[in-house]
Write a protein that binds this DNA or RNA. Structure first.
Length: 299
DNA sequence: AAATATCGCAACCGCTCTTGC
DNA sequence: CGCAAGAGCGGTTGCGATATT
């Protein structure tokens, strides 16, 4: 008795999003905020399911997303958090406010996994390595290693949260690619590599994906940029954007950003524990609590 | 230069969790 | 309390780009 699909798949478009679709989506969200995804396709006329819209927004169009190269810093942080949390990408992503869980997951699968395998051989921070190693060494040794790992994670975490060290991690607007910027970048790229002449052209216009938009005549680029002016307020400074919104909308967009984690008051037990430099006494107790937590440490 | 292999990323799928009635 | 629908999450896939033969 499977659950029916989230939306009627018939007639819905799949695959890469087009600039036009992105603009429609961003425009709608600018007006209504990123909520009630169910209503998005019906209100915008997008032939996408609500889920697809949400995904596109959260992984790509949302203001504050940094794309491209991961810094060494981010890399270390991901490695340690993965060792601590496992493949809980959303949780890991919450420590890297500029990155999406999808991005981190992809980066882990394509880069870090291999890197760690290469570097560590038998010694590994990965779930597999950790677990196999655990069986080879004594409990004491393993716990000492765990302490070291956590110490390193703690270091990486505080480094990441320290504004002067982390290039833009704590200073939100700088280095952030806003929706407009994301779209603009793509448009530039798109224009640099103009669409190839149509071959088997059953896609065009609204249905034409970014990379293979075969009919630039389907929408004049001037129109695209004209439309982009609508999102001027998105640009480079989220605060400017917020000011142009109603308080409700502004808060929606603020909430949309990944949570700031540099406020100890909001930290979870694990985070507090990681930060708690002084009290090494009693950590064994806390450690056992964490162990009991199941897959956080034991895999 | 062409064919093939590999890589990286965006997007989809299916499951679970949450929420409202 | 149970059900349905929406939202979120992690795993997987598809495909274009790039590297290698």
């Amino acid at each position: 008795m499977g659950r029916p699909p989230c939306c009627d798949k018939a007639g819905l478009k799949k695959g890469p999003w087009t600039p036009e679709e992105d603009i429609i989506l961003v425009s709608y969200i600018q007006q209504h905020g990123p909520a009630n995804w169910r209503a998005v396709p019906t209100h915008t006329g997008l032939l996408r399911c609500s889920k697809s819209c949400r995904l596109r927004w959260t992984n790509y169009l949302r203001p504050g997303i940094k794309r491209g190269n991961f810094t060494d810093h981010e890399e270390k942080l991901i490695i340690h958090l993965q060792a601590l949390l496992g493949n809980r990408w959303a949780a890991i992503a919450s420590y890297l406010p500029q990155r999406t869980d999808n991005d981190i997951k992809n980066y882990w699968n394509t880069n870090l996994k291999k890197k760690l395998k290469k570097i560590n051989g038998s010694e590994s921070y990965s779930r597999e390595g950790f677990s196999s190693e655990k069986h080879q060494i004594s409990r004491g040794q393993w716990e000492r290693k765990l302490q070291t790992d956590i110490q390193m994670a703690k270091q990486a975490l505080s480094d990441a949260l320290s504004p002067e060290k982390s290039s833009g991690l704590a200073s939100k607007p700088r280095g952030y690619a806003s929706s407009t910027e994301n779209i603009a970048k793509l448009l530039k790229k798109w224009m640099r590599n103009p669409p190839k002449p149509a071959s088997s052209d059953n896609m065009g216009g609204i249905g034409t994906p970014w990379k293979e938009n075969k009919s630039s005549n389907s929408i004049e680029m001037s129109e695209v940029f004209e439309s982009l002016e609508v999102f001027e307020s998105f640009d480079s400074s989220n605060s400017d954007f917020s000011q142009s919104l109603s308080p409700d909308q502004a808060s929606l967009f603020q909430d949309e950003s990944k949570p700031e984690v540099n406020e100890l008051g909001q930290l979870t037990l694990l985070e507090k524990w990681l930060f708690d430099d002084g009290a090494n006494q009693g950590k064994d107790d806390q450690l056992s609590d964490i162990k009991l937590d199941g897959n956080a440490i034991f895999f």
